[in-house]
């Protein structure tokens, strides 16, 4: 089964408990992504897009349903197993970059490598390569507060790809950026998909951002459905 899906969600539901009230967020999601895909998950805010991403990363657990990522059944895994799973298979890109402020760009990128058995020399090599891919080699020694938003996000992307994970998860990566920087980031993601064959799941409410993906799925009121015409129009550039 060479084409076994990287991500497979089946009948996934998720509800939050607010006081005594059950608030359903996902009402039964089925989603399959195969290797090398670049999927944009769209929808209005509060539609549960980020929750889907969190479930796939194993940082949140579903109320019901099966989630398999890179061949593993996440439901059966402990917190520690999930951490090891993320370390090996997931690269996470956040809207607010979430770099550690007391570490330089290269130290931030090196962070996930601390979990691998690589030597210090090998770690430095990997970091240099990742920074080269995102085009941030000359900013390696800078602290996050010395970088622009776009540069910070590029450092964060370097951190996400440095371990060569199976899957990149990006949660509104351009949500906090100006248009130029946003374009740069989206181009970078597309290049990672096209040149390096990275499987990418991008969560965004911005149709323009979704336009960079190969496939687009639309999440509304907890179910995956057809893309409204208004979105489709602006997404096809």
């Amino acid at each position: 089964m060479g084409t076994s899906p990287v991500v497979s969600l089946r009948h996934v539901t998720k509800s939050f408990r607010r006081d005594t009230l059950e608030v359903p967020v996902l009402r039964g999601i089925d989603l399959e992504t195969s290797g090398g895909d670049f999927v944009a998950l769209m929808g209005p805010s509060g539609s549960g897009k980020s929750t889907v991403l969190n479930l796939i990363a194993g940082i949140d657990r579903p109320t019901s349903g099966d989630i398999r990522v890179a061949g593993s059944d996440l439901a059966s895994m402990s917190e520690t197993d999930l951490a090891a799973f993320r370390s090996r298979h997931i690269g996470f890109i956040f809207q607010m970059y979430n770099l550690i402020p007391v570490l330089t760009a290269e130290e931030n990128v090196a962070l996930p490598l601390l979990l691998t058995p690589l030597s210090g020399k090998e770690r430095r090599e990997h970091v240099r390569t990742a920074l080269g891919v995102v085009g941030l080699t000359d900013r390696a020694k800078h602290f996050p507060r010395q970088l622009s938003g776009g540069q910070e996000q590029r450092a964060a992307i370097a951190r996400a790809i440095v371990t060569d994970p199976t899957l990149l998860l990006a949660d509104e990566p351009t949500g906090d950026l100006d248009a130029t920087s946003a374009t740069e980031i989206l181009e970078l993601l597309r290049r990672l998909n096209a040149e390096y064959g990275k499987t990418i799941l991008l969560v965004t409410h911005d149709p323009r951002a979704a336009g960079y993906a190969r496939t687009r799925r639309f999440l509304d009121k907890g179910v995956l459905g057809e893309m409204p015409a208004s979105y489709a129009a602006s997404a096809s550039r």
Partner: peptide, 16 residues
């Protein structure tokens, strides 16, 4: 708190 969550999202085991 947020930074610790980021580390865990990066794959740092809870104990670490």
């Amino acid at each position: 708190a947020a930074e610790a969550a980021v580390l865990r999202a990066l794959g740092f085991p809870p104990a670490r």
